[in-house]
Simulated scan of single mutants.
Amino acid sequence: MNYTFFDPPADYNNPRAATLISGDESKTYTHTTYLLIKEALYEIKFKEPCGPFKKALLQDNILAVGHQCNFYLFDIARQQHILTLPLNQYFGNIYQKNGLFYITDSSGVHCVSPQGDVHWHNGELGTDGVMIHEFQGEKMYGSGEWSPPSGWEDFVLELATGKPVK
């Protein structure tokens, strides 16, 4: 899927309607980013900038977006906000496996269904970044940054629970 995030200039006057994907509670937030996917324009409103990473994925009609300190799910067919998931310090990345989303932040991984159910969260995997390297069978292999800039430690988690494999 091709997409573009862009921050509007201060004097930006959006000539066409954008669909707000960050939920009604975000309408009063002062910061705005737009996401353009083909001909569709989506708006993300947020409180404060907190991280440089951003990514969008489309799974069937579900738009999954990681941006700043949050992860969002939005149903594009129903034009309905599903979830805003606050993350620890910043959004890291989104991964997909078996129809589920795995979202990393500064210290852990969240497992979320397309319906917005958080299946599990493990926030004890790092202090300044978590990466998933691969999924193998019912396990997730990754690493967490514990002592920047080179203190990465590997981990293996059960996909069903997020608990470390012993």
Rank of each mutant, 00 (worst) to 15 (best):
P52T: 12
N61P: 01
I44N: 07
G51P: 01
K54F: 08
Q79G: 04
F46Q: 01
E48Q: 09
I76F: 02
P49H: 11
Q59Y: 15
L73A: 10
N70M: 10
R78A: 14
L58C: 03
A77W: 01
L73T: 06
Q80P: 00
I82T: 06
H67Q: 11
F71P: 04
H67M: 07
K47R: 13
C69T: 11
G66R: 08
Q80W: 00
F53R: 10
P49G: 09
P52F: 08
K45W: 08
H81D: 10
K47F: 12
L63Q: 02
I44V: 14
L73H: 08
L58E: 08
N61V: 06
Q80N: 10
A64E: 08
D75W: 02
K54Y: 11
G51F: 03
Q79A: 09
Q68Y: 06
K55E: 15
G66D: 09
L57V: 06
K55T: 05
I44G: 10
C50I: 07
G66W: 07
L73N: 05
V65E: 04
I62F: 08
D75I: 05
I44P: 06
D75H: 01
D75E: 01
A77L: 09
H81F: 14
L83V: 07
P49E: 13
K55F: 05
K54M: 10
Q80R: 14
F71L: 13
Q59A: 14
E48D: 12
L58R: 05
F46K: 01
L63R: 05
Q80K: 15
K54G: 07
L73K: 09
A56D: 01
F46N: 00
K55D: 12
G51T: 05
A56K: 01
Q80Y: 05
N61G: 04
D60A: 13
H81S: 11
F74I: 00
I76Y: 02
C69P: 00
Q79C: 00
N70F: 13
K54T: 03
I82W: 07
F53W: 07
F46Y: 15
Y72M: 05
F74K: 05
D60N: 15
C50N: 12
C50W: 09
A77H: 06
F71Q: 10
A64V: 10
F74S: 01
E48L: 08
H81Q: 08
F53A: 11
I62S: 03
K55M: 12
A64I: 06
L63P: 05
E48K: 11
F71T: 09
N70G: 14
F46T: 04
I62M: 06
D75T: 04
A77Y: 02
A77F: 04
K54R: 15
